[in-house]
Nucleic acid binder design. Structure first.
Length: 451
DNA sequence: GTAAACACCAAGGCCTTATGTGCT
DNA sequence: AGCACAATCTCTCTTGGTGTTTA
């Protein structure tokens, strides 16, 4: 009798001599000389079953034995029209694929509906402890069953388990055969080479990815599509703005560097460009930047060029002129709820001191962080200033004005920050996002790239 | 005895911007 | 003429996990 079982992140097929022929079309299946059977990455489980079924072979599925435990999930939640459409698209795609929806569009409830539709043991994978807490709360109220946790110092498995990416990476080879459905929240994290072992080591045939920005500049989303499934549904912010999300407006404000900053910037930029010219390096693709980085290890002039570029960046992103402009914006929006975003922690603390605004950076402890956000929520604070901390994975209270003092060229970062001010307003008012850009610097291109 | 706080490590995403070279 | 494509260790910021110290 042929058996199918899970072991160390792989699926083993043993027994029947016809198995080899049945699986011949699956490229990732290898013969296992030790057992005389075959094995493949756990993610091939569904394909192997299909191949065995197609060949008319009987088998004892010991993976499924642990997977189907008679879970009966129900929900009372009514999906919005687009949420229903997204779910249907995913179900039609053989329950594999990624749904791309803006922050605040209710991705969680779609996952809940997917879990109801399948009613199998489910693993939810999330990037931060904060999100883990939110998911566990959500699932416990929705389903009234115990919810397990991998991460944050706890390793407890239940039929419904929520894990961090890091813990999932550590546990996947062990528990990878125990789930019938896996949900990847903020699925773009699977672009990281290490994390890609998580979906590889799981047998779960049903796979759902959720994100606000599927595509990545490094094209790693193509690998995500292989591991989780293709994008099956997408809506952009503009599709929901004014309806389920607030209307918004982006205003770019151009700022002149101060005379001193201009001097520093031009000098540093010239050092950088000069090196490029004399060294034969060109800045055309990402690999050229890597090349420069590589050379800087041995070539002092390359290192000087890199540092000069860094100086130029600092000047244009943290310009005093921006801080002065910020003073005017804050005065104008005295009665609004404002989040200020920057790219550097130094600038966060400079602003915090000058305007007496609570700062949040990676150095802010969890307790203090929670306290600041609570007071922002209840109205004690009208304004917070944050580095990259609030971009993703934190439940940030609603604001109606965002000020981008500095940021990277990342479209993802921009979308996430915009999403912070888009929760529908009670009075139907428009959310405002200011972008401060230093004129005649590389920042103009950076700002262009993220749109 | 326990939990919070801390320091440490590894990892991910980002960083640039218009030139030569070799191929078709 | 037009096109694709170059190659791997610096910086900054943030996070989770682990192990140790402190209260």
């Amino acid at each position: 009798m042929t058996t199918l079982r899970f072991e160390d992140g792989t699926v083993h097929v043993d027994g029947d001599p016809d198995v080899g022929a049945a699986l011949a079309d699956l490229s990732s299946v290898e013969a296992d000389p030790r057992s005389g059977g075959y094995r493949a990455p756990a993610m091939q489980y569904a394909a192997i079953r299909d191949a065995l079924d197609a060949a008319g072979l009987n088998y004892d599925d010991r993976v499924a034995a642990t997977t189907h435990s008679g879970l009966a999930l129900t929900t009372t939640y009514d999906l919005r029209e687009y949420q229903r459409a997204a779910l249907d698209a995913w179900l039609d795609g053989d329950s594999r694929g990624v749904i791309e929806l803006p922050t605040g569009a209710g991705k969680t409830v779609i996952a809940v509906a997917a879990m109801v539709a399948h009613s199998v043991p489910t693993l939810v994978v999330v990037p931060t402890i904060d999100l883990q807490d939110q998911w566990i709360r959500e699932l416990e109220t929705e389903f009234d069953v115990p919810v397990g946790r991998f991460g944050g110092g706890e390793q407890r498995q239940e039929a419904l388990t929520v894990s961090t990416y890091d813990s999932a990476y550590l546990r996947a080879d062990d528990v990878g055969g125990d789930f019938g459905l896996v949900v990847f929240d903020e699925v773009h994290h699977l672009g990281g080479a290490g994390y890609q072992d998580i979906p590889r080591f799981l047998t779960a045939p049903a796979r759902l990815g959720l994100t606000a920005t599927f595509e990545r500049p490094d094209d790693a989303h193509e690998q995500v599509a292989e591991l989780v499934g293709p994008r099956v549904y997408e809506l952009a912010v503009d599709d929901l703005a004014g309806d389920h999300l607030a209307d918004y407006e982006v205003r770019r404000i151009e700022v002149e560097l101060t005379a001193e900053e201009r001097g520093t910037y031009d000098e540093a930029q010239e050092t950088f460009v000069n090196y490029l010219r004399t060294s034969g390096l060109s800045m055309q693709s990402g690999s050229d930047y890597q090349k420069l980085v590589m050379r800087s290890g041995t070539d002092p002039r390359a290192r000087e060029a890199l540092l000069a570029k860094q100086r130029a960046r600092d000047v244009m992103m943290n310009s005093d002129a921006k801080v002065d402009k910020l003073a005017r914006l804050l005065a104008r929006h005295r009665d609004d709820r404002v989040i200020i975003f920057t790219a550097s922690t130094d600038l966060v603390y400079r602003i915090a001191r000058r305007f007496l605004v609570p700062p949040i950076t990676s150095e802010t402890g969890t307790k203090e962080r929670r306290e600041i956000l609570t007071r922002f929520r209840d109205g004690t604070y009208d304004t917070v200033v944050a580095a990259n901390v609030l971009d993703e994975g934190v439940d940030v209270p609603d604001a109606n004005v965002g000020i981008l003092l500095s940021g990277s060229g990342s479209e993802r970062e921009f979308t996430q920050r915009l999403g912070r001010i888009l929760r529908p307003k009670a009075d139907g008012s428009t959310a405002l996002l200011y972008e401060l850009v230093s004129v005649e610097t590389a920042e103009e291109r950076v700002a262009e790239r993220r749109r």
